[in-house]
Design a protein around this nucleic acid. Structure first.
Length: 210
DNA sequence: CACTCGATGTTCT
DNA sequence: GAACATCGAGTGG
């Protein structure tokens, strides 16, 4: 067993955050997910990371996949809070979202970056990179490192194998910015990206002026 | 560093 | 056809 498991023996076996946690206002959940721990338990080995960057996607939000109604791809967004929505982007990458709000209101949170705390060697193998900062500092990087793909779409984030547990009780500064990759006319000017400002593992630096 | 660009497939116009 | 909640290799200062 490697040292990271010795130093964090309880984390990956802690109780997942409940459905009630996710059944609140999307911005609230997006903010409170920061500092919690995303865990993927697999036979190959557990991977886990502290969530350091999230984005909220709201109903009536032109940047949301659900902005033009329900389709085959986005239908998990219309399901119950805690539903996992994984989609493929640019044909090659996967992004992980967690549904909030009651069924019928399509809102979700994109998990954009985590700080690796367990299964780092597995992450290095999957990513083909050694540097800690390169393993999970982006929405598609973290899904690759943690082996998250379409097989987890429609899953339940409140139970294994993919779930979130309470992180270390340490207060860290939160910064709010505009979301990444969205043009102005698609909601790119809305302050819906949430970061732990002191993290080394953000998908990109926090711009003082966007 | 900063920037461009190709990969690759699903969705929507 | 074009766009896309991205990444990494490549190029040029």
């Amino acid at each position: 067993m490697d040292s990271e498991h010795n130093s964090l023996p309880m984390l990956t076996s802690a109780a997942p955050l409940s459905r009630e946690f996710y059944s609140r206002e999307t911005v609230t959940v997006a903010t409170e997910l920061l500092g919690q721990v995303l865990v993927h338990s697999e036979a190959a080995g557990d991977t886990a990371g502290i969530i350091v960057e999230t984005e909220a996607y709201l109903s009536s939000d032109p940047g949301s996949h659900a902005s033009r109604g329900k389709t085959q791809r986005n239908s998990p967004m219309f399901a119950v809070p805690g539903t996992i929505y994984v989609y493929q982007i640019y044909g090659v990458h996967f992004c992980l979202n967690i549904v909030t709000r009651p069924a019928g209101i399509a809102e979700a949170i994109l998990v954009r970056a985590v700080e690796p705390i367990a299964g780092r060697e597995l992450m290095r193998q999957r990513r083909g990179r050694q540097e800690l900062k390169e393993l999970t500092s982006g929405p598609a990087k973290l899904t690759k490192a943690m082996n998250i793909d379409l097989s987890l779409n429609w899953g339940d984030i409140t139970v294994p194998p993919l779930y979130v547990v309470a992180g270390p009780a340490i207060r860290r500064p939160v910064t709010v910015t505009t979301r990444v990759g969205l043009p102005q006319n698609r909601g790119g000017d809305l302050p819906l990206r949430f970061c732990l400002a002191d993290s080394e593992c953000l998908s990109r630096p926090i711009n003082v002026h966007p």
